[in-house]
Design a protein around this nucleic acid. Structure first.
Lengths: 243, 243, 243, 243
DNA sequence: TATGAATGAGCATTCATTCAT
DNA sequence: GATGAATGAATGCTCATTCAT
């Protein structure tokens, strides 16, 4: 027996980190409701009660995980400098950074969890929005703005374009951790991101066709229906936008 | 006693439908773990025990919800005809259709639920992939292929572009049902979709700049670093793709 | 096996009563905090979960015990009629009734429990006061008033006398269920009540002495100190009444 | 480091005292089960572990509180001298003393606690009886005896009268600390005690009526039923004394 | 002595599932 | 088929107690 396993060699200072890491793993795997605090504890090499020495309850533990792990990423992006790179390059870098630091890691499970629990714990949703989503949107927005001002980008709906810009990465992170796993698929993230950038930077439309649609303002109404022989059904869709 | 209270005049066949609708609502609101079968039952106007007459357990009920509600949507898209519209228009229509039939409805909660539970119930994830995701991807892929063949679209990475193409809509559906609610935001779906289409069809890059980047194949390696003065960090990012 | 022990032969209607009886016993024995709902259940021959079908939580169960068991007693006393008995007799009857219906039964444990938990659950304390204590005080007060009006009783501080009148019974109930048990004492309740009634109705003071102290009003200040050679310490006590 | 923060200048001997005081407060407020040793410690300005240096467990701590705080009071009463005061005065003094030293202080919470826990810890109940109750009874008994012997008091059931005599004070102490608090009542202790003394010394019965009932021995059977027109129900009560 | 991090048994509460009616 | 009372396993959380420092 001896002191083979000393009851607490580790420092109080180390505990929170260990618990948070363990919690991230368990929440990732089981979701919020499915995560048992006992597993979080066991995983961190401590007993159930110890968790409560550091976090008053399950919800706060989850929040702590988000705060601890996500916030730094956003800060990193926020402090990205505008240097003399092209705006395209900065966007490319931003998306890759997000992927490398968040999407490709266990952290992206948090997206899933927050989405799932936002109804039950609106405060968590708000926190995630304010801390993670909004800053990202703001950063991407500033990059788009920069591109337009420097004549690199066409004049588009900056606010919404920013939201759209990061959406595929969010989805990718989600899929990698869910469908990929259970369907034995192996989506290639770099190829995915590249496809996204290609489309978004250059557009699908063939250069020769550009004249036809090019030149409209960013907020321009959708392509005029009648003009391009669209079906009535599409008209209907556009005229009664839902929600 | 007689039929003083015709407790079940409704046909037996109607029950499953009502249960499924009720279940969709409850799962939507509470998530899988949070949904109480008693609420599903109450909501459908039956007793707790009745649920078990139709579905052996909670998991099967969820699967049934997905099967019942999602499958038809995909069929509708699958049978979309190639007529003489432009490929851009078909893509536009496809995305609007998805939004109208799925994203904007309670169904989009299923995305959230499936994502959350895919680890716990891989079979559910597989089913969702096979039934919902894959067909959509295939359909979008076919549209992209058509566009390229008809000279409307540039030659891009069709397989991945299809995945990217629907990703923002998935994200939008997720956000509308989570962050929008708890942050009191009101994202405008039509504006969002339009921004997406604008970017994807025309690209961000200003026409005059196009020459510089245009002309590379779809699967082309990312813009050559050195050539455009990108920082080493981006290089690094691209050279060590994670996950 | 057969249906030796049918899962639930007993009626839903019977359950609450059985649970309440069981709860009274367990609360009596263990106090509020010490009572385990599982014991309450087992005692009533049901499972833990069943308790929650009838009472939403431990606190409500306790309240229900009080409501169910105590209220009737008070009602009984409240409806006691003023007939042609002497007021002494009515008081005698009231105290005996209290003892027979409450003090001598398991119910008197509730006094103990309510006292113990009143700080933690003030609402419970209020409820007990309003439902049990106050009505009793009011009833005794009315009897005292009647006695004075009919010339049977001296003119005393009716409000406080009523409180004092029932106090010894409360204490007796408490003692019987605590000290008597653990000290192997066997206080004789009838003798106790009789001693109380003797003192209270006739007073300790010997008839011959009565002239000396008699004749003062009920609310009279305590016997004048100096006049009867009392010690300074008592003076002090009276001049600085605490609390 | 040195003694930069003289963490414990206080003598070791002081600790138990402080702990006991703190424990009294916490037990008072929360009851036995509800009291958290951590609060006791914090309140005394020490750490949780320290409590265990002085008291092996919670139960012993409670016993120590009782021993420490209650014993002195009894001693004080026990040493009360019989001087030339009237027996009424001595009784009056005794009750006031009890109120001042015990009932009106935090100590009276101990009554509540001991009552609550006597079943769980019979030894505690015995200790309280032997140390607190019995001596008080004995003292009051001696005063009553003295009164009778000196012709001041009628010939009553001394043993039980003593118990009854202090009962209202016990109840008052209990009520002040429970119902008064949660019902926002403010019972006036001096008025209460005075009402008690008035009744007990002079009796309720109007002087003119005294002849009718006076003159019976203390242990006399209750007023003869038939003789005073009492109802049959009272007869019943008296003939089947319970418990 | 004193500390306070760690433990783990213990209990209230929930809810999917069963089954006698 | 339908009911809903009953079940009991599961889990969040508390707190008396221990013990390495």
């Amino acid at each position: 027996m001896a002191n083979a396993t000393p009851r607490w060699t580790r420092r109080k200072d180390a505990r929170p980190q260990e618990l948070l890491t363990s919690a991230l793993r368990v929440f990732s795997e089981k979701g919020y409701a499915g995560a048992r605090l006992e597993d979080v504890a066991k995983n961190a090499g401590v007993s159930k009660g110890t968790v409560y020495l550091y976090y008053p309850n399950k919800e706060e533990l989850l929040k702590a995980v988000v705060i601890e792990h996500v916030s730094p990423i956003v800060d990193e992006a926020r402090h990205q400098q505008d240097d003399d790179k092209s705006s395209s390059t900065l966007i490319r870098e931003a998306l890759h950074l997000w992927w490398q630091r968040y999407g490709s890691t266990e952290l992206s499970s948090l997206t899933k969890i927050v989405m799932s629990e936002a109804n039950a714990f609106p405060e968590l949703g708000r926190f995630f929005h304010d801390t993670v989503i909004a800053p990202w949107w703001a950063y991407l927005e500033s990059l788009l703005q920069r591109g337009i001002q420097r004549g690199e980008f066409a004049d588009i709906d900056v606010e919404y374009a920013a939201k759209v810009l990061c959406a595929p990465l969010v989805t990718l992170g989600l899929w990698k951790r869910t469908l990929d796993t259970c369907c034995n698929i192996d989506t290639n993230p770099m190829r995915y991101i590249e496809a996204h950038l290609q489309m978004v930077l250059n557009g699908l439309t063939c250069p020769k066709q550009k004249q036809l649609t090019q030149g409209k303002g960013a907020n321009a109404a959708p392509v005029e229906p009648g003009a391009s022989g669209e079906s009535a059904s599409v008209l209907a869709l556009r005229k009664h936008p839902k929600s």
